[in-house]
Design a protein around this nucleic acid. Structure first.
Lengths: 210, 210
DNA sequence: TGTACATCAGTGAACGCGCGTTCACTGATGTAC
DNA sequence: TGTACATCAGTGAACGCGCGTTCACTGATGTAC
């Protein structure tokens, strides 16, 4: 975590020693603050205490750095979800924990989250023969094992897409400060928990009572 | 719609005559293509066939143009929702039509949609004493009148936030091509309709059957 | 109806800036003997 | 253990570019008389 050089003027050595990782870290921070579009190579290099040109020893260019960040974020998210899915408790508890993990990831790692969803070429659902299961695959698997009786004839994939869309909507509305806050206002975790249960429970019903 | 000057080289007159509207239109197009961050005053001026400096007769600067676009989009969205809400049919049919109108707006007017949600200072839910009801207000009203018996003790505001998050999630995932497509895949309209019914129907249930 | 003139809505040249990227270079590191 | 040298990972200067914005200007429009 701690960079080899502390700041400008405190150059421990000519070689940075950890530059690639430090640049990725810097990109993650700037993307979190300003979005993918507002991210700049020059800023990242300056923060790390290095000439912008040094970046090209480790990345083909700006786009390559962004893809690397998106890839890291993708992996991190999948790990968090997998951890929640294999934690202790009842299937429903683990499934609920998974939803919380998703929202927490979007909140704690806004740089990663933005990189994943604002960068082309790394869609979350389409699996280009990935080494590990994608977040969506994990969600689908969790749904099936948590509700083995199914959803009244509705495909699990269908319910999984709804759950994902609700999660993503809550995460992005919260990040852009569009969700009303304040005393008496439900927070996103509460909204997700109740919403997911309603989606799962209400799937397959032909009509509401009203 | 049709600009007064057709293209560069075909200058009907020294004065444009419709420049402000034409610039807003151009911004809408470019934001749709490249996002708010990728939008450029120079491009907008070029598309309209005018010098970049001309823009400053009508807007204080780039930010002011973006705010104007976001405001227009906000109004357009509210109008579409209000139209769906007052259309013919049963309350449930009108409510369903409202959801479709929301997704259609995001799909047909991606420039407006991005301007609304990527521009600071114009949050959709917070109402700074707006002249007309905000989209969220319309949704809340529609929910109450469509389901007058309530939601088993759950606040309508709570359900409305869930419905909005689901809609927003589907709209943005669809726009960023993260929703899996293809034969056998449900489209977003289907997902929204079923999801909303499930949310409404499942609200207030303590636990799922599994 | 015609003319003088104020107002308006554009032009076009220029600016300072920060960006991504390149290039020849050089200091540091590590390996062979 | 010490030295020669290849390799690696940085520097720093420079580039071309497009951006948002400013300014003095000028052509077009509309109004007063």
């Amino acid at each position: 975590m701690r960079p080899w050089r502390e700041g400008p003027g405190d150059r421990r050595s000519y070689h940075h020693g950890n530059l690639k990782e430090a640049l990725i870290e810097a990109a993650r921070r700037f993307i979190a603050e300003r979005g993918v579009g507002g991210f700049t190579l020059v800023d990242a290099a300056r923060l790390v205490g290095v000439t912008p040109a040094a970046l090209y020893r480790h990345f083909r260019g700006r786009e390559a750095l962004l893809e690397e960040v998106a890839g890291r974020g993708f992996t991190d998210l999948a790990e968090r979800l997998a951890r929640a899915l294999t934690s202790r408790g009842t299937p429903l508890e683990r499934f609920t924990r998974m939803g919380e993990a998703y929202l927490a990831f979007a909140e704690e790692e806004p740089g990663y989250y933005a990189a994943i969803f604002e960068t082309r070429g790394a869609p979350m659902a389409a699996s280009d023969v990935p080494p590990r299961p994608s977040p969506f695959d994990l969600l689908l698997e969790a749904l099936k094992s948590t509700f083995p009786d199914g959803f009244g004839g509705v495909e699990p994939r269908f319910v999984a897409l709804e759950v994902w869309a609700l999660s993503h909507g809550l995460a992005t509305l919260s990040a852009s400060a569009h969700l009303p806050k304040g005393p008496g206002m439900p927070d996103k975790y509460e909204l997700l928990r109740a919403g997911v249960l309603a989606l799962v429970h209400g799937a397959g019903r032909p009509r509401p009572s009203a």
